[in-house]
Design a protein around this nucleic acid. Structure first.
Lengths: 249, 249
DNA sequence: CGACACCTTGAATTACCTCAAGCCGAGTGG
DNA sequence: CCACTCGGCTTGAGGTAATTCAAGGTGTCG
């Protein structure tokens, strides 16, 4: 691993790897920073850190010190619900930020777990704060990140309140598709890094329901699924399901 | 409305009414600001604005310019779901902040509607930004506000994913109780400003279910309810329902 | 006093869950 | 190389919590 930079993947710590060369830069937190500012931003980053599948990036109750940007791989954010049920509240893909729910708090309210071998960039929040003193654009970027997450949470709230299982599932798949597409990958085919149980937990469904819906969607020609490999075959139909998903309530 | 200050309620615009004298100050956004800083904060506030029941404080799609702090009364935050269903995503009580989901965005993603006659303090965000350049504590307060909301959204996510109707309802009532208590009112008795339909929308339940649960709780001696007047009689029992609420899934 | 919005309660339906069994694929070790 | 195991996935059958539909009650305001 002391060879040369392995393409788009993150480099192990010790290697130089700058934001400027990162393929995610266009979607990442410092989006919109001027080149000079980006340089400064770059300077405060603790270089990519590797995590194996199942490893905890953040444990609920840990003191808050840093934000983390997913560089490669993926994570789930989980809350240990009252009464020993773990509940998945978010999935994080490359360029997405973990720890925002702890900004300005002392402790992390949620855990973040790697779903596969992954790398993260660590942003010590104190440095980030200090830097944002001088870079209003950075402050704006932080605000934008947080409010976007608030916004997404609200849409999720709607989904969980009112949508049938079918609609939730369709929305989830489309959401994944969009997020992959935004990063330059195909919106049609992708790997789900998380288990059916994780998806169920996230969507408020039993894992059996998730499985059944996948099968049903496949039977109806909306997608092809084999294990965690998904290929969306009929986006418009999925969108129709997700958008209005028939009347209910 | 040009008479004198009506007790603890907000004063109509035109009247002087400072943060320093506001009974909510202890829980409000500028919490923790030094007296001198509070003075400056005070200076950027547009003085309380009255809204009648049903009035829109913010309409979905409005350009974002300001945050609003509820001074008296209450609001619901609603999303016009895809397909013409309105979905309540939050209720706002005095000292709580509306508009955080639009910070750093161009447009408001949600509407905010008065549930009763209410007053709000308007905080032009540009001024807030400018001021927070000089007052790190203010920036911290903003961060804290946003991350707290993120945190609350996650707990809500858990509730909506996994909880029975009974548990949701108990949690909701306890949450209201807490928020009232935090403002110095009784945690036992309060008025619900919102309709059963609003509660149902918020909790992902049919309004009939909300009604039935209220009745059931009353029958079991957990509370007394008459219209929108609620008196919690057995907090521990409600907490038991809310906490573990029996196994499910 | 009638109109209207909101709330309550009942009866029937249903979407989703639970329980249970079997399958598949990957890793392990004989 | 095969048998074994183990976690994750699929599928079926049956049960149930919460919904929908429907009717009637209550309070409020013009």
């Amino acid at each position: 691993m002391t060879h040369h930079t392995p393409g788009h993947a993150a480099t192990p710590s010790g290697q130089v790897s700058r934001c400027q060369g990162c393929s995610l830069c266009a979607h990442c937190l410092p989006l919109g920073l001027a080149p000079d500012d980006l340089e400064q931003f770059d300077a405060i980053i603790r270089r990519p850190r590797p995590l194996k599948r199942g490893a905890l990036l953040v444990r609920e109750g840990d003191p808050f010190t840093s934000l983390y940007v997913v560089r490669s791989g993926s994570f789930k954010q989980v809350v240990a619900d009252t009464g020993y049920r773990e509940n998945v509240t978010h999935f994080l893909l490359p360029s997405e930020v973990a720890g925002l729910d702890a900004v300005g708090e002392a402790l992390h309210p949620t855990s973040v777990v790697a779903l596969e071998s992954s790398f993260v960039c660590e942003l010590p929040f104190a440095s980030l704060e200090a830097l944002s003193d001088r870079l209003p654009a950075l402050r704006g970027a932080l605000y934008r990140c947080m409010s976007q997450e608030l916004h997404r949470d609200q849409r999720l709230h709607c989904l969980l309140s009112f949508a049938t299982a079918e609609r939730r599932m369709a929305s989830f798949l489309l959401g994944m598709s969009e997020r992959h597409a935004a990063r330059g990958y195909s919106p049609y085919g992708f790997q789900l890094a998380m288990s059916r149980a994780d998806i169920g937990s996230f969507l408020g469904l039993a894992l059996e329901t998730v499985s059944r819906l996948m099968s049903r969607f496949q039977r109806h020609g909306l997608l092809a699924v084999r294990g965690r490999e998904v290929t969306l075959l009929d986006l418009p139909a999925l969108e129709a399901l997700a958008e209005q998903g028939e009347t209910r309530r």
